[in-house]
Nucleic acid binder design. Structure first.
Lengths: 107, 107
DNA sequence: ACGGTCTTTCCACGATCGTAGAAATAGGGT
DNA sequence: ACCCTATTTCTACGATCGTGGAAAGACCGT
């Protein structure tokens, strides 16, 4: 994980619509959710949803799998964990400043 | 922490320049860093830096304290921890019981 | 091959972003 | 009061974003 990638993933999540989409996917769990279902749930235009989904996929936070005519979307937990880890490192890092327990990623 | 706030904080961090600024501040630790020092370190225009700093301050990720003519900036660890916690909840980062419904959705 | 559904791509457009030079403001020392 | 440094605000402008309607593409059943 480098700062560029982190920034891109954060940017992808840094939009209420996309964060909502992502959260919806997380809530859906391992089974994922077809694009159409997300659209119904969130009530946004298909083109808009597709556009946002594309962004989330580009930065690897979401993956898609085709099942016949429908596309199942799933949140990529591994990627999110990587991002959270990076943030935790950035937040507490090597400085002993952060008084919360958190991680001790500092080798 | 609500989704709107989270999105705003994520958006603030979702820019390479701002993430770099934030990281620099984290690295600086409790003592913080004056605006001018950050500017020298990162080599960006003062107005640009001020603009980005403002954004980080607006979403509470950074705080400032005046010391005579210089403004000391500090990373707000508490806020970051809150954000990380939110993200962890959203994506089941602890992976303990990641595979289904759960969380505040019900209840 | 045709019709039907699901999803993306194309196109457009106003809104916001990122950048930085120039001017203004804040604060303190002499 | 004046000057000096530190920082912000003003202003501008090209770039990118967020949105959605319309058309195209993907895939299947018959």
């Amino acid at each position: 994980m480098n700062i560029e990638t982190a920034a891109l993933q954060l940017e992808a999540l840094g939009n209420a619509t996309r964060l909502t989409i992502y959260r919806t996917l997380v809530r859906a769990g391992e089974n994922g959710l077809p694009v159409g279902k997300i659209q119904l749930k969130l009530d946004i235009a298909g083109s808009t949803l597709s556009h946002h989904l594309k962004k989330l996929i580009e930065v690897n936070l979401v993956s898609q799998e085709r099942q016949a005519t429908t596309l199942i979307c799933r949140a990529n937990y591994t990627s999110m964990n990587g991002l959270i880890g990076y943030l935790a490192d950035e937040c507490c890092a090597d400085s002993a400043g952060c008084d919360t327990e958190t991680h001790e990623a500092a080798a």
